[in-house]
Amino acid sequence: MSGPINIRDLAVGARVVLGSGAEAEIVSNPNDGVWLFARYLASPRDPALVGQEDMIFAQDVVEVRP
């Protein structure tokens, strides 16, 4: 696994993997390096989240899908 990810400049539409195993697509990026607004595409632990929008905290982001 790679080191910390700088989410500050991730583009809208980019997909990120979270520590929980969930995957989300960026809807907007406030470019503060701390938060992303994203929509869940997959959430193995809590399938009810899929389709919902949420604020994603930078420390939860473990991977950016290529």
């Binding site: 406030p30 503060d32 938060w35 905290f57």
Partner: peptide, 24 residues
Amino acid sequence: TTVFTCPYHGWSYGTDGALVGVPY
């Protein structure tokens, strides 16, 4: 900006002042 994000623990406020982001 879209939010005012606190550099210390990451609380984040909307431009209307509402607290929108609280880590964990």
